[in-house]
Computed example of a mutant assay.
Amino acid sequence: MDDVDRSILAVLEKHGRISNAELAALVGLSPSPCLRRVRRLEETGVIRGYRAEIDPAALGRSLRVFAGVRLMRHNRGDVAAFERAVVQLPEVVHVHHVTGNYDYLLQVEVADLPAYEDFHANRLADLPGVATVSSYVTMKTLSARTP
């Protein structure tokens, strides 16, 4: 990977729907070599896909909460059971296995605080192996990738 590839990735990360002609102009290539490079980056797995960024509020999920989860035990069976269950919860957008005070950090999106209270008490706390949950309500989200 060279500096041109890095430039292509930087542009695509911010503007995934840009046309090949516009991308080529921004990175200083003609369209054909630019398209070849993009296809190679896709084929080698550097570019894993393209997706739409959806506004959660438009879907009635205006409250974002980060939940730190500690498990009671860390044997393979308990960890696997928790992971199988947590990814099935539609309110859970991302699951990160982390180091530090928690075993997992979850990004949860719900309609409002009462909806999170219900989710926390009746779904999250009942998952296999959960010992504790600490919740952090998001007040504002900033994006380092937005110009």
Rank of each mutant, 00 (worst) to 15 (best):
N75H: 15
S143T: 04
G68P: 13
L9I: 05
V93Y: 04
L29D: 02
A67E: 11
L127H: 09
L63P: 08
N20D: 11
I18W: 09
G100A: 06
S135Q: 04
Y102C: 00
E109M: 00
N75I: 11
A24N: 03
L71Q: 10
V69G: 09
R36D: 01
P56K: 01
G129W: 13
S62T: 03
C34I: 06
M139K: 03
T132K: 15
A67C: 05
L29T: 00
P114Y: 13
R70W: 12
E53M: 13
L113G: 04
Y136H: 15
N75P: 12
E22R: 15
A67Y: 06
A25I: 01
I8S: 04
A121Q: 14
N75D: 15
V87M: 08
C34Y: 07
I47L: 06
T132H: 13
P56V: 03
T141L: 01
R40L: 04
G16F: 06
I47D: 05
G45C: 07
H120D: 15
E13H: 12
I54W: 13
A111V: 00
V46I: 14
R48L: 13
R145F: 08
H94A: 07
S19V: 07
E117Q: 14
S30C: 02
G77E: 15
A121I: 04
E22M: 06
A144R: 14
A111N: 04
A85E: 04
N101Q: 15
R145D: 04
A21W: 12
V27S: 09
R36T: 05
F82Y: 14
V130S: 01
T141H: 04
N101V: 06
A57F: 09
V46P: 05
R48G: 10
L142M: 03
A144L: 13
R64V: 08
T132M: 07
R39E: 08
Y136T: 13
D103M: 02
E42G: 00
G129N: 05
E53Q: 13
Y50A: 00
L113H: 14
A85H: 03
V65D: 03
R123K: 11
L26V: 02
V133C: 04
V79E: 11
V93I: 02
A85N: 02
F119Y: 14
